[in-house]
Amino acid sequence: MSVPERGVSEVDDHPALSFQRTVDRSLVHRTAIAEVFVVDSIATGDRQCEVGAQLPLTHGYYSDHLAEPARYDPILLLEICRQAAIYGSHAIVGVSLGTAMIIGSFTLRLHNDGLRTGSRPGDLVLVTTYRGEPTKRGRVRNAGVSQDLVLDGTVVGRHEMKLTALRDSELEALRRHQRGATPPSTADYQGHASGHPVPSHLVGRRDPRNVVLTDLRRGDGGVTATVSPYFGNNALFDHEYDHLPAMVITEAARQAATATVDDGTGALVRNHVITGITASFEHYAELDQKLVASTSTRAMPDGANTVDVAFSQGSSRVAEISLEIVSRRGGE
């Protein structure tokens, strides 16, 4: 899949972004400075901007992979896309602080040949366009974001996201209404909430604290598992949540897909590369209800496999995430 060449030309036609320091953490909705990757932004038009971010070479969560050769983590790119969209909405579009950005869906397409890590951190430019019509009160509630990803001058992918913007007070009221009471907080949980964590090598990890699945079972053409992350992992839970956030569910999808295309020993994990992720989120993933992930696989004409991961709590479908995975051997 090709990405429009305008991404490169736009980057070249505007003043250079500064990659000297990260932005104010509150503008990307992070608590820890170490989890901020956005460095700068420049307005390039009406609801258009370029956002700069630096990709770390070493990170306790995003760099913890068995795949070789080393590539930048697709979920790191998703997190940066999320941060860049939030930062631009505040710094460029003028969305007020105290506004929650609720992800409805996203699509990420990657050119992995350009995502290998080098000897220095990667400088990523996100050519970003915002969409959305304001209400009579001048607020944009339902918005869209499109981002071309340019890494060290090379177009490496494209991200599109749909989201809903609500004031924090509105979101709190909505959550109380949905449940009939105040929901629990991630601060109330420690370790893995339940079950037997999947051995880390079976989901492409070294550190067991980065494993988010328990009680993995294999069936005909797929796996099922319970989503039960390690709540002490600050990369996943940078601040308190009253639900399992979208990035945790996406990580669960990646791990379930990895286990699905492996042979059950972890031997094939090193050869698999994710080239695309598509997700839709229908309901909040409640902390006090069991969240189950179930996978199925589709073979694609180009030789890739698409693993579909469905997430459910009881009879309610929470999310659906599809990952495109290719096998690359011999250092490809």
Rank of each mutant, 00 (worst) to 15 (best):
V3I: 13
E5W: 08
G7A: 15
V8W: 13
S9F: 12
V11G: 02
V11D: 03
H14M: 10
A16K: 10
L17M: 06
S18H: 00
R21K: 14
R21C: 08
V23C: 12
D24A: 13
R25H: 03
L27F: 09
E35H: 00
E35M: 00
F37V: 07
S41I: 11
A43N: 03
D46V: 03
R47Q: 06
V51Y: 10
G52V: 02
A53C: 05
A53I: 05
L57D: 11
L57V: 13
H59M: 00
H59N: 04
G60D: 10
S63W: 11
L66M: 09
P69V: 04
P69G: 01
I80T: 11
R82D: 10
R82E: 11
R82Y: 10
A84V: 07
A85N: 05
A85R: 08
A85L: 05
S96I: 00
L97Y: 01
G98K: 01
A100Q: 15
A100I: 10
F106N: 13
F106M: 15
L108W: 11
H111N: 12
G132I: 13
E133N: 15
R137C: 00
V140N: 11
G144V: 06
S146C: 03
D148L: 03
L151Q: 05
D152N: 07
T154V: 08
T154Y: 03
T154E: 09
G157F: 10
R158D: 04
E160S: 14
L163R: 07
T164L: 07
S169F: 14
E172Y: 08
R176F: 11
Q178P: 03
G180I: 10
A181C: 02
T182A: 13
T182F: 03
Q190C: 02
G191Y: 15
S194L: 12
S200F: 07
S200W: 08
H201K: 10
L202N: 07
N210M: 02
V211A: 08
T214M: 05
T214I: 02
D215F: 10
R218G: 06
D220A: 14
Y230N: 15
N233I: 06
H239F: 12
E240K: 13
M247E: 05
T250G: 09
A253V: 02
Q255K: 09
A256T: 02
T258L: 10
V261T: 15
D262C: 14
D263L: 05
A267V: 14
V269N: 02
R270A: 08
N271R: 02
N271Q: 05
H272I: 06
G276H: 03
I277Q: 12
T278L: 00
T278M: 01
F281Y: 07
F281M: 00
F281R: 00
H283E: 15
D288P: 01
Q289G: 09
Q289H: 13
R298V: 00
A304K: 04
F311P: 11
Q313I: 10
G314K: 00
G314S: 02
A319P: 04
E324S: 03
I325E: 01
R329N: 14
R329G: 13
G330Q: 00
G331Q: 13
